[in-house]
Design a protein around this nucleic acid. Structure first.
Lengths: 207, 207
DNA sequence: AGGATTTTATGCGAGATGGTACAAATATCG
DNA sequence: CGATATTTGTACCATCTCGCATAAAATCCT
């Protein structure tokens, strides 16, 4: 029984937790990421996190609630990474490639086989029957569009991009390239092939 | 389209079927389309097709086998429609818009809420754990790319497209736009918004 | 030490799930 | 008509599924 040292927490009153909630959430996310929401059972989640069912339930609520927490965490990480990759001061093509490289690092982060994007691979499936997930998806995708569009506008101001280019159009195309990379990664494309795809797309978008 | 022998079959020996296999397959596809592979139970499929479980099993095999048949049918229809939309003799921009309009017609074909693309919304989720599905996905996406690329090459020969454009790059971008449309349709975007997105993207691709 | 508090661990229970056995039903063939 | 062939419908089985009740364990407070 390993005691998790957590210094920033004051002293808790009862029996100490045998798990780190944040780490457990990441492991649960891995399980959902691999098999999707419906394809992941509580036993799978229990095995992945090392927590038994009552502990899982006490920490995260029911299965859907745990999934929503994992989804929210993924959105935060993905949007944060994108925003950072695009914001740094680089030539436009480098910025875009940075964003796609960052995405690929996530899509191929599984220990086993490439899992693609957590959102695209698991949440989209549930979107028809779950309004909360569905609305979160639209919000997130529009945030991607907005980040790309801002980057294209900046490039236009700097003279990196033709004046007659349409930043909004290029932005949804850039998101589209991200989506097709995510889908193809899960479909067995190699990382090298997708890097090449990204390079070609960036060249076409910036040329 | 291959006509499966129906009435032209001489005479079957035993009790006649109470269902049309082709229609049942379409209804089963609808059920999977809505809830995904894991999210659809045999009871759901039984209700959707009007067939009881033993009949379902006799006609299509087990659940996975039925799903694979639905997936194969969808691929055939989707690829056929794309190929036809792109092949007809039209200006490049019209061809592309035709392809996206055709896709949107499928993505919004549900009686209830938009279901997006059957492949993207259900098969991609299963791709990690099912090699057969995964390999079919890569084959299908590359077929999309190939059709788009052929169309861009033709446009280049006709002088519709700049000589320095990269048809292969434009093709994966065009597939990417298709994918992001599919994802957004299931995520609640309106059809009008996606038509506008497609128009913008086509303008950027052909300009 | 002894009570209070919180977490862990076992395991139960009601229902869903995928798949099948078996007999009744409905057709053709001889 | 009776034999044969095929499908249907009911009912069933073994397993999984989610969620929770309950008691034991491990810590803090007085």
């Amino acid at each position: 029984m390993v005691q998790i040292s957590n210094d920033d927490e004051p002293k808790r009153r009862g029996r100490p937790r045998a798990y780190d909630p944040q780490a457990a959430l990441l492991r649960a996310m891995d399980a959902f990421w691999k098999s999707g929401y419906s394809g992941t059972s509580l036993d799978d989640l229990s095995a992945a996190t090392g927590m038994n069912r009552p502990s899982l339930y006490a920490a995260f609520g029911d299965k859907r609630s745990l999934y929503l927490k994992a989804l929210a965490h993924y959105w935060q990480v993905a949007l944060g990474a994108m925003h950072a990759d695009l914001a740094e001061n680089r030539p436009l093509a480098d910025s875009l490639m940075r964003a796609y490289e960052g995405a690929l690092a996530i899509y191929f982060s599984g220990e086993d086989r490439a899992r693609g994007c957590f959102v695209v691979s698991t949440a989209v499936t549930e979107a028809v029957e779950d309004a909360e997930i569905r609305e979160g998806l639209m919000t997130g995708f529009l945030a991607f569009d907005a980040d790309f569009e801002a980057r294209f506008r900046a490039a236009q101001r700097n003279g990196e991009l033709r004046d007659d280019a349409d930043p909004a159009a290029l932005a949804v195309i850039a998101t589209g390239v991200m989506h097709t990379i995510a889908i193809r990664a899960r479909s067995g494309a190699t990382r090298a092939a997708l890097e090449e795809l990204a390079r070609k797309a960036v060249r076409a978008l910036c040329g």
